[in-house]
Each structure stands twice: as structure tokens, then as C-alpha cells.
Write a protein that binds this DNA or RNA. Structure first.
Lengths: 203, 203
DNA sequence: CTACAATATGAGTTATAGCTCACATTATTC
DNA sequence: GAATAATGTGAGCTATAACTCATATTGTAG
């Protein structure tokens, strides 16, 4: 459902010191969320932990929701970088190899900060769309398009949707709730098998 | 992360009128969440919408979180009933048919109240484990065990995990964000194909 | 019909949390 | 070095929201 609260910055940091202030605020927010959960993450506490004044915080973030949105984007951007690197590195490889590397990259991405990831998912309200997630969708579409000769795709958007949702949800749940499935690459192997048997052209 | 706030009822309703009070409170909460989102769902507003006093609300729910937990359980229980009916009705059918019916049942379950489902997922803090979700896991394990002669399973728990996460996340995302994929049973067909090719023994 | 149990009530308390804004400090430009 | 722009400050305001508790009402059992 569309949400109207402004989350774009009140003003953009121009000097190094203000860029560092913004970064300190987001890092402080991440630490508090990770250590004590969303309930304790008041804006006063975030500012104090960042070592800045509450007024500084509100210079760059119009409201608390804007802080959480910026933190979520930063976190997903970091994850997308790992996925993008994997997709680029395996661009010339056959899909069997590339898909396995893709899955492993997603596991690595989720392991950047699994506790923060869990709190962002389970406790922090999600009130607007993420542009960082859209980037991952584009990566996966490119991944499939590069291999259109090997795979059967009738509806590209539907296939991208299935690929992204399946990988994200399995990796997410495994890293956060069932790390035992990740021992000896069990889940990575099964996921690769699941998706290969779905994607590769049946003859 | 373990959470300590009590969410079990302060006391159990015994008479019909108190059971109706509890039901009215949960229904009022669902309506407010669906119409205006979690931010506006104050306990005073929920009580008013339910037509009861704030003191009545706190007789049965120790805190706001307990209301949200009870509502989530009620919602997932309703969904689990549809899935259970489908699993039972197709118990004697081959996996090709049963899996397709299972996927369709999950779509139907998500269509009970998709807006409430979305708000519960995206806005309402999730601070404790759901016993209703565990019920669905048991259903899916039974679904697989009944067909062990047709499918290849090395690690039953891992396969149940993959089945549940894959179905839940794809159906959830489709019903809430991409209903276009559900036209002409596109997604149901693709999901059935994805999971069949993964489950059925390769020879 | 009375006593007791179950249930209901809502004004008021408590406890912050989100955010503002008038003023101070620092960096940059000329 | 002064003027301007950028940045930083924190006491205090505002606005609820979560929850309590002393009292009232209703249902049930004997």
C-alpha cells in the first residue's frame, strides 16, 4: 500500500564531515538494531551512539523512518555488490557453474550481517519499495538473457521472478534460521539442482 | 533472537460473551491494520473499534504485542486449514496432481486476506515463533512421506524446508505484488514444474 | 433471591519518543 | 581577515500510546 511519509533527505551532505556524520548515524543505527532490537532504537539513542546531536540527525533525515530506509538501502546495496561481482565473474561460464556461483554469492551476501538482516526483515516496518532490490532483479535478468540458448524461457519476467524469490527466500531462511542446511554445501547443491532442472531446456 | 515479553493471555475467556469480546478485539485489529496500517493501530483505537473498553482488552491481552501475535496465529491457522484440506483430499493422488493442488491451495490461502497478510509481514514486528507455521511444515512432511516411492529424498528435513520456503515465498510475492503472474495459472504451472522436476526421481 | 465469579469499564497515570528551532561553531571563499 | 555557507547543538515542546486499577455490571450456582 502506498505510503506518504517523506524519506528523502532534508539536505544532502556536501563536506566530508557531514558525509561522515550521515555514515556514523547509519552505523550507529545498525549497531543498536543488531544488539538490542528495533524497540530500543529511538532517534535520541541513535544520535547519542553516533556521537552527534539529535539536531544533526534531523538535518539529514526528516524522520526515523528515513533512517531505517537509508539503512536498509545501504545494507541491500552491499549485498547486491557481492551478487553483481559473482554474475560478472561467471559471465562466460556455463549455467551449471554460474548458477552454483550465484547461489554461493547470495549466501555470502546474507552473511555480511545476518543479525541486522533479520531485524530489518522482522522488526523494522517496510513502508516503501527498495531500489536496491530492483538492481538485483536486473542482474538476474541479465544472468538469464546471457544464456538464452541453453535454457527454456517462455515468460522472462516470470522466470526472473521465480529465480529471485526462490534464491532469496531459501538463502535468507537458511542463513538466519537453519545454518545447519549450509554445512558441506548441502543447500547450495540442492538449490542448484532445483533451479537447473527447472531452467535447462528439456529434450 | 529470543524475546521475553509475555504474549500469553492474562486470563482465558470462559463465557460466550468473553469469547466474543476476544474475537471482536482481533477482528477490530485486523480491520484497522488492513485499512490504515500498523502505525494507527493503537490499543485504544482497537478497543474502540471493537466496541469494548480498553480495560477489557487488557484483561485478555497483557500488551499490544500479544494482540498482534494472536492475530497472526489466527490468520495463519485459517491459511493452514485450507492447505490441510488440500493435502487430505489429494492423499491418494499421484504427486503430479497433488503438488498442483497443493500450490493452488496455497494461493487460495494467501487470498483469504492478502492486505492483512501484507501488513502483518511488512509492518507488524515479528518477535516470536509461530506454532501455526510449524503445523504447515508437518503437513508438507506428511505430503512427501506419503510419496517416498516416487521421489528422491536424501535429507527429508532439507527437502521439506525447500518445499515450504519455495512455495510460501513465490505464492506470497505473487498474490501481494504480482497478481499478473497468477493469470491463467501461469505461476501455478511453473511452480509445479519447478518442484516436480526437483522431487521426482531422476532415472 | 443472594452470593460469588466472571466480565466490563474508562478516566487517568506514566513514560517516553519523535522532532523543533534559536543559537553556536567550523569550513570555505573572496 | 571577514563574510557567508555549511554544519552542529541539545533543552525543551508536543503529542500521544501503552497500560492500570478502583469500581460497576452481568452471569451462574446453590
Amino acid at each position: 500500500m502506498p505510503h506518504k511519509t517523506r524519506v528523502t533527505p532534508r539536505k544532502q551532505p556536501k563536506q566530508d564531515r557531514s558525509k561522515m556524520t550521515v555514515d556514523a548515524i547509519l552505523t550507529a543505527a545498525a549497531h543498536i538494531l543488531t544488539e538490542d532490537g528495533y524497540d530500543t532504537a529511538s532517534t535520541n539513542r541513535i544520535a547519542e551512539r553516533a556521537g552527534v546531536s539529535i539536531g544533526s540527525l534531523y538535518q539529514y533525515f526528516p524522520n526515523k523512518e528515513a533512517i531505517m530506509t537509508a539503512l536498509r538501502e545501504r545494507h541491500i546495496d552491499e549485498m547486491a555488490e557481492i551478487v553483481e561481482a559473482a554474475v560478472n565473474q561467471t559471465a562466460q561460464q556455463p549455467i551449471e557453474v554460474a548458477l552454483h556461483e550465484l547461489v554461493k554469492a547470495c549466501v555470502a551476501a546474507h552473511r555480511i550481517d545476518p543479525t541486522l538482516h533479520q531485524v530489518l526483515d522482522e522488526q523494522v516496518p517496510r513502508l516503501n519499495q527498495s531500489s536496491a532490490e530492483a538492481k538485483i532483479i536486473l542482474l538476474l535478468r541479465e544472468f538469464l538473457v546471457q544464456r538464452h540458448d541453453r535454457i527454456q524461457v517462455q515468460n522472462l519476467e516470470l522466470t526472473v521472478f521465480i529465480l529471485e524469490r526462490t534464491i532469496e527466500s531459501l538463502v535468507h531462511a537458511a542463513v538466519i534460521e537453519h545454518p545447519e542446511f549450509l554445512q558441506e554445501n548441502q543447500l547450495e547443491e540442492e538449490m542448484t539442482r532445483l533451479l537447473l532442472s527447472f531452467l535447462i531446456r528439456q529434450v
